[in-house]
């Protein structure tokens, strides 16, 4: 195999479109309208200026709101990591199951980042990689030998006031990792695919059916309605999945 210098690159980016161009356009429109209104006076109908100004300002407001909404979100975030680790190689080409490394996903709120010792399960033997040779893999050994932790850059961050449990979603809800984390098997550097906004969460809860066969739900009254055909499905929202205290406490 030949080394691929772009092995960390991703074929896609989920970064929201930049609104800089649109913003410049709006500013230009406003500037032109003002210029013509007070100086050049090429257009006789002042209503045109008014309309253009209105449209320009509306655009500015729209952009401002759009940007404000994006504040604190980080869709498309793809930081460099201390080790040039590629999910494409591990999860994609070598088909390692996600849970092999992210062991907490079925039991804990955190899927967890694997301890360095877990990397060594394989990298005790595999001392050299196709793309980076020994440099990157040596970092794991150094870290374990010297006892200094690897400081990964966290990509998916939820605010402190949100309680999210992987166990609930993956173990109970049987949601595929892909659903939120995207096509990780084809990612070099890991990238945040979803915007992790509350609207995004809620939308999913509205659409996703609950596995009502789980005996836990045996006492739920919706069973009757399901049997009688009154309702055809029970979504997460129907059992309170969109209540505040499902995530905020």
């Amino acid at each position: 195999m030949k080394a691929n210098p772009d092995f960390l690159q991703n074929a896609f980016s989920y970064l929201p479109l930049s609104s800089n161009g649109l913003f410049s356009l709006a500013c230009l429109l406003i500037a032109f309208a003002l210029l013509d209104l007070f100086f050049t006076r090429a257009i006789r109908f002042k209503a045109v200026h008014g309309l253009v100004l209105l449209a320009g300002s509306a655009l500015v407001v729209k952009i401002a709101v759009g940007e404000a909404v994006l504040l604190g979100r980080s869709q498309g975030y793809e930081p460099d990591q201390p080790i040039k680790f590629s999910h494409r190689i591990h999860a994609g080409e070598n088909k390692i199951n996600c849970v092999y490394c992210h062991t907490g996903v079925n039991d804990s709120r955190y899927a967890g980042i694997p301890p360095a010792s877990l990397c060594l399960n394989c990298h005790n033997v595999i001392r050299s990689g196709t793309n980076t040779g020994k440099t990157e893999i040596d970092k794991i050994h150094q870290s374990v030998d010297s006892g200094t932790a690897i400081r990964w850059v966290k990509v998916h961050t939820l605010p402190d006031f949100v309680y999210f449990s992987h166990a609930q979603h993956v173990n109970v809800g049987k949601i595929q990792c892909k659903k939120c984390h995207g096509d990780v098997e084809n990612m070099g550097r890991i990238q945040q695919v979803s915007d992790l906004s509350m609207g995004w969460c809620i939308q999913c809860h509205r659409e996703t059916n609950v596995n009502f066969d789980n005996k836990y739900y045996a006492s739920y009254k919706q069973h009757k309605a399901l049997e009688s055909g009154k309702i055809s499905k029970v979504t997460a929202q129907d059992i309170g999945g969109n209540n505040c205290s499902k995530c905020h406490y």
Partner: peptide, 26 residues
């Protein structure tokens, strides 16, 4: 501050060797 607003860079620091009895979050 808003004009220069950037999200903070958070670090995720796993165990070097995870103790058997500890699962983070449990």
């Amino acid at each position: 501050t808003l004009s220069g607003c950037k999200n903070a860079i958070n670090k995720a620091i796993p165990y070097l060797i995870k103790p058997e009895s500890i699962t983070p979050g449990v």
